[in-house]
């Protein structure tokens, strides 16, 4: 891990991102509320990758959008999301988000890179524009800096003059990653970076993201692809019905003793390399959540206790989580 410049005013011990009790509500027509994210808390340190996993509609993309200030107008926020210098992403105005945070403090690795790139301009011109915008490099040396930025994401220099549609899926992903890395942001946010890619490309993308983490960045990766998460993450957060129900080390989560929360166990068991057995039923509607544990209706261990909301103890939110083995805790 290389040493990285820490912005002024930053507490070196502070995590790169600290999310505290984040809740997002959408007001719907007719006065109804949709609880897209409820009470999410986690820390993310420099040089660490946290994978936020869950099925589509569990609220993980909403969480990402909240961090970037990209929620629609009918959303309401609560809680805090602090960067290492104490900036709260949720209260920062659109102006400071655009000028000092997006691209500079948080880099976004998009879901569909081909759609993220402007189709009528070459990779070089887009990268150069971002370099001019985000770095103090003098105009004369922009070309050099652009090539360096491409190199950082392993984008081949001889492809810089191509248009996005002339790139393969893998190269388009690298181009988008290169754009995200230009501002040298200490925190990267990847929203489903591997969706729609084939297995070989998923692995390559994951490895490249892992490399940027090993250089000292913090990466929050949002995905439903457990295999990609297993390949890259240091820690795994599982989201269900808008709540984080499990937060565990990746080695523990994917290996022994496995996840603590029955939903996370079910998700892993559904993988074709494991028992390939689906979790019965479907996730609840975020606009119509049950009073107690949202997973209880699908859970074989559910009992009367599950009628009340389990508290998230920093590891899991389940009344029936197995007792911790002190040697592993």
């Amino acid at each position: 891990m290389t040493a990285r410049a820490i912005p002024d005013g930053a507490d070196p011990a502070a995590p790169a991102l600290s999310v505290r009790n984040l809740s997002v509500r959408f007001r719907m027509r007719g006065g109804a509320h949709v609880a897209a994210v409820t009470d999410a808390s986690f820390d993310l340190a420099a040089g660490e990758c946290l994978a936020l996993v869950g099925e589509s509609g569990c609220g993980k993309s909403v969480l990402a959008s909240a961090l970037l200030g990209l929620l629609p107008a009918n959303a309401g926020l609560d809680g805090a999301a602090l960067l290492d210098d104490g900036t709260d992403l949720l209260t920062a105005g659109e102006r400071s988000l655009a000028r000092t945070i997006r691209g500079r403090r948080i880099g976004l690795v998009p879901q569909s890179p081909a759609a993220h790139l402007t189709p009528v301009r070459t990779v070089h011109s887009q990268l150069a524009e971002t370099v001019r915008e985000l770095t103090p490099v003098p105009r004369k040396r922009t070309g050099l800096a652009t090539r360096a930025a491409a190199e950082r994401a392993a984008f081949p220099a001889d492809h810089l003059d191509r248009y996005p549609h002339e790139l393969s899926g893998g190269l388009a992903q690298r181009a988008a990653t290169a754009l995200a890395l230009v501002g040298d942001a200490p925190l990267l946010l990847a929203d489903e970076p591997t969706t729609g890619l084939d297995r070989a490309l998923v692995e390559r993308t994951a490895d490249e993201l892992r490399r940027t983490v090993d250089e000292g960045r913090a990466l929050l990766m949002i995905t439903h692809d457990l295999a990609a998460a297993a390949r890259i993450a240091d820690r795994v957060a599982v989201m269900y019905a808008g709540r984080i129900v499990e937060l565990a080390d990746a080695t523990r989560f994917f290996g022994e003793p496995g996840p603590r929360h029955p939903y996370a166990r079910g998700l892993l068991d559904a993988l074709p390399e494991r028992s390939f057995r689906p979790i019965p039923g479907m996730p609840p509607e975020l606009g119509d959540l049950p009073a107690g544990c949202a997973f209880a209706p699908r859970c074989e261990r559910a009992d009367a206790l599950c009628g009340t909301q389990p508290r998230f103890d920093g590891r899991t939110a389940c009344h029936h989580a197995p007792a911790e083995d002190p040697s592993r805790a």
Binding site: E55, S56, T195, G196
Partner: peptide, 14 residues
């Protein structure tokens, strides 16, 4: 199942 999570994948295949 390319865009689906593990549990839904398993359910559809079943």
């Amino acid at each position: 199942t390319a865009m689906l999570d593990a549990s839904t994948t398993a359910a559809l295949v079943a």
